[in-house]
């Protein structure tokens, strides 16, 4: 296991409007299949991916919430959300699903340092 690269995926785009969130999840689940250690950071408009109560059927898309809820089944449980991005949007962490850890800019720098590969979506 120790030879496997640690991957940090940074999600900065809102769900549904573009494919970034979906693409990111595909990469995360695929890395999960290979048992690579994965962390997900949600920042900027990406924090909306974590908001509870998605009902995407009427816009012809799958619920991202339902897919993100499967992350623990892929042993992906390291989820982080940027504190200042929550503040920007007037959101509180208790409005979010999936129990992310709230992190500040210093903690984000440390996340980047402590992973071998950083992918941004």
């Amino acid at each position: 296991m120790s030879d496997k690269k640690k991957v940090l995926i940074i999600n900065r785009r809102a769900p549904y409007g573009r494919s970034n969130a979906r693409d990111s999840l595909d990469v995360a689940l695929t890395c999960g299949v290979f048992e690579m250690p994965i962390s997900l950071l949600f920042a900027d408009d990406g924090v909306f991916q974590l908001l509870g109560g998605h009902q995407a059927k009427d816009i012809g898309q799958k619920n991202l919430s339902a897919n993100l809820a499967a992350l623990p089944m892929y042993d992906i449980d390291q989820l982080f959300v940027c504190e200042s991005s929550l503040n920007t949007h007037g959101l509180a962490s208790d409005q979010l699903d999936h129990n992310p850890t709230v992190v500040d800019h210093n903690a984000i720098q440390q996340l980047i340092q402590s992973h071998d590969v950083v992918l941004t979506f």
């Binding site: 900065r12 920042a43 900027d44 200042s84 800019h105 984000i108 720098q109 980047i112 340092q113």
Partner: peptide
């Protein structure tokens, strides 16, 4: 937003 995000991520 992108510029600030980047600058805040630098170590």
């Amino acid at each position: 937003q992108c510029l600030e995000r980047c600058l805040n991520a630098l170590s």
